[in-house]
Design a protein around this nucleic acid. Structure first.
Lengths: 203, 203
DNA sequence: GTAAAAGGCAACACCGTGTTGCCATTTTAA
DNA sequence: TTAAAATGGCAACACGGTGTTGCCTTTTAC
């Protein structure tokens, strides 16, 4: 077969192109947040972006690719190591970053995707999740290297329960846990390592 | 408007009806497990069940209803209180029951639904999740009533992190945690209450 | 200013959903 | 046993969303 005639362009130099790409991305996130992935249609996005449907099909491979491209940048911030010098400092920094990502108004789309709303976005979401939990894992590893945690502490399991405790709180309650709730979660998940968790700053 | 002409029949008395209902249910779970919710089609189920597509449409309201009806019975077992007399006993019983539910071969469908694969099944899945976590919550409450846990222990948070730790383990690793992994998770989530968790029986 | 790139428009094929009318088979009850 | 009622099979249909294509207009780059 010949090389696929329709492929995603990579440049978008002109001002019109830029305008369109941005407009479509915003419209995608808006529609995604409004109706969810399954009910979202390319036509709807095109209309919301005031752009022809064909234009979308010419730039993005399909619905999945369109949404993945729109959502991807939202998922990136929470992956960098904080390095505050203490386990609790690092974890709070990660939690705040996660919250900042998930509470951005346009990330309401992301929340909906996470909330069992994503059929074929599993790979994207899962990969982002893996990278994010990686940051948590490293925070624990550094703490152990500094001697804050014992050799016998179950870092992987603490990291796992903390991270998914936070994430599923979002799914269950449709909001990110408050500072207080985060502190309680830290207390539960760090107790096994004997780490005392003081109440959050504004208490 | 007149009363909806198409409605789900409730009886299925005749042997043929029974055969068909069962056959369709099995085919639905098979197809669901094979291709996932989004890619599953009514036509595919009809073919797999060796039944006419129309027959399905006459008995079940739509795809969502078809899958919900097929999946629902799988979700019921893990909601009854175990009452073994100790917190660890109750929790192990709940965990075993959860595993039994999720590891049934036909529940591979259920696993796929849980794995971010369900667009419009959120309500069903969420309701089942709520009922199941309720059993965990009660196990903690009983333990506190018996004096096994202190007044100050954060039951809700321990229950939350334990339950979603288990569930998300499944999502991440595509298998239910082993006995050892469950024990590690119990250790982490119960440490805050000072509960010691011995290794599982077969260790 | 002109050629190339990119968007707009209209029409199309394809597929899955959900519906309907008509006929054949099965079930139930007399 | 037999007739009426319930139910399934079949074929055709409308509808909507996806993804494609050809042709024309606008924008961009040089």
């Amino acid at each position: 077969m010949p090389a696929s005639p329709r492929k995603t362009r990579g440049v978008h130099k002109g001002p019109r192109s830029q305008r369109i790409v941005e407009s479509v991305r915003e419209a995608t996130l808006r529609e995604l947040a409004r109706v969810g992935y399954a009910a979202m249609t390319i036509g709807g996005v095109a209309e919301a972006a005031d752009v022809n449907r064909t234009t979308i099909y010419r730039r993005w491979p399909n619905k999945q690719g369109l949404v993945a491209a729109a959502v991807e940048p939202l998922l990136q911030s929470a992956e960098i190591d904080p390095s505050t010098g203490s386990l609790l400092g690092d974890l709070w920094a990660l939690i705040r970053r996660l919250r900042a990502t998930l509470e951005r108004p346009d990330a309401r789309a992301l929340t909906r995707v996470l909330m069992l709303n994503a059929p074929d976005l599993r790979e994207v979401v899962q990969a982002a999740g893996d990278r994010t939990i990686g940051a948590f894992d490293r925070a624990f590893a550094y703490a152990q290297a500094r001697g804050e945690l014992g050799r016998d502490d179950d870092l992987a399991m603490m990291s796992h329960t903390l991270f998914f405790g936070l994430l599923y709180w979002l799914v269950r309650h449709e909001r990110f846990p408050s500072d207080d709730e985060c502190a309680r979660m830290l207390r539960v998940t760090l107790a096994a390592a004997g780490v005392a968790v003081p109440p959050p700053a504004g208490s």
